[in-house]
Each structure stands twice: as structure tokens, then as C-alpha cells.
Computed example of a mutant assay.
Amino acid sequence: MPRCERLPGPGLAKVQSPPLFHRRRVELVTCSTGRLHALFDRADVLSEGGTRNEEGALVYYGSTSLLVALPADAPLDPALDRALALDPHLRLRALRVAQREATARAGGPLGPMQAEIRCGLARRAATTSIALTVDVTARVLITTPKTARPSGA
């Protein structure tokens, strides 16, 4: 009778009793929504993109970049970059700006949108800004004569 070879990895071990409780410390950080809206109202916005004909439907591909200048009293510690990248209000605001820009460029209303958001701090000589890039893909729902032909590529 052939002898079975053991697979690599840990062997059998006796189950031990798990600890009664676990301790976890969490620091929650969020931006002030009112101040954030005021900063976004003065943001520099740059968009590019266009539509492509894919399988008989127009699909919009584009990118929107936002540069939001931070006030002089903003703390510039390492946690700020991570907090900004994870703040849901900041991400939603950037997504809405990108959707507005994409709808204007696509020439018609957009269906469900897929977006990828990147966020980080951009330090310049005089100011520090939040740099956001939103890449958008969405199907154009209604075609008008303006968008009947794909643009660019």
C-alpha cells in the first residue's frame, strides 16, 4: 500500500479557547462639510473626454481634475492626506462635479456611471491644495445630432 505524502503547511494543532474580548482603538477624522463646500466652489476644474461608439451605443470616457486650495489654517500633518482620501463627503462632491462635467461633454444624459477617484495633497511654493482626479465611464442614454458621431478616437 503506497504511503500518502503530507502536503506542505501547518500540521494539526489542538484548538485553544479564543480570548474573551478584543481591544481596538480607532481614530475618526472627517472634514467640515460647510467649509468643504466653500472650498469646492472656488476649485479649479479641468475636464477632458469624449464619446465612442461601442456595440451600437455611445459610451463616454473622460477624466476630471480638481485642484482645491486649502486655507492657511489647515493642518499639514501626514494624517490629513489619508483623511482626505477616505472622506465620503469629499469623494461625493468630487464625483458630482465630474458627473456634471461628463454630462456637459457627452451631449446627453448619462446612465449609471463607473468612476475611479484618486486624491492627494499637492504642495506648491505658496499654497497646499487637494488634488482630485475622477476617471469616468458611462453610457449616453439619449443621442442627439450633436453626439451622433463619436468624438476624437
Results as ranks from 00 to 15, higher is better:
48 E>P: 00
51 T>E: 09
50 G>I: 05
8 P>Y: 07
41 D>E: 15
44 D>P: 00
62 G>Y: 10
81 D>T: 10
96 R>V: 08
91 R>E: 03
44 D>Q: 14
90 L>D: 02
141 L>G: 09
24 R>Y: 07
127 T>E: 13
101 E>H: 09
54 E>K: 13
108 G>M: 07
148 A>Q: 14
47 S>T: 15
151 S>E: 11
114 Q>I: 02
81 D>S: 14
104 A>Y: 01
45 V>Y: 01
3 R>C: 00
19 P>A: 12
30 T>C: 03
6 R>V: 01
45 V>H: 02
55 E>L: 11
128 T>D: 07
130 I>N: 01
75 P>R: 13
96 R>C: 09
114 Q>S: 12
131 A>F: 08
80 L>Q: 08
68 V>H: 01
37 H>I: 04
110 L>E: 05
32 S>Q: 12
60 Y>R: 05
126 A>F: 05
150 P>M: 05
104 A>I: 00
54 E>H: 08
42 R>T: 06
40 F>E: 00
86 L>A: 15
86 L>Y: 01
21 F>M: 05
145 P>Y: 08
30 T>E: 14
28 L>D: 11
115 A>K: 06
63 S>D: 09
144 T>M: 03
103 T>N: 02
106 A>Y: 10
44 D>A: 13
4 C>K: 12
82 R>D: 13
12 L>G: 09
116 E>V: 11
71 P>I: 12
142 I>M: 02
1 M>E: 02
137 T>L: 08
55 E>M: 10
36 L>Q: 08
104 A>S: 12
55 E>Q: 12
87 D>C: 11
136 V>S: 09
105 R>V: 01
1 M>V: 02
21 F>P: 00
69 A>M: 03
131 A>T: 03
42 R>D: 09
62 G>I: 10
18 P>T: 04
60 Y>I: 03
150 P>K: 12
87 D>M: 05
68 V>Q: 01
44 D>M: 08
78 P>A: 09
129 S>A: 15
113 M>R: 11
37 H>M: 06
34 G>H: 07
145 P>S: 10
56 G>K: 05
84 L>Y: 09
152 G>P: 00
108 G>P: 03
88 P>W: 03
51 T>G: 09
108 G>R: 07
149 R>T: 05
138 A>M: 03
108 G>K: 04
39 L>T: 04
10 P>Y: 08
148 A>W: 03
18 P>W: 08
148 A>G: 02
22 H>Q: 13
12 L>W: 08
5 E>V: 12
51 T>Y: 04
119 C>Q: 07
61 Y>C: 05
85 A>Q: 12
66 L>S: 06
144 T>Q: 11
126 A>Q: 09
78 P>W: 03
146 K>V: 11
103 T>M: 08
12 L>D: 04
101 E>R: 15
20 L>Q: 13
53 N>D: 15
148 A>C: 04
54 E>G: 00
63 S>P: 00
118 R>G: 15
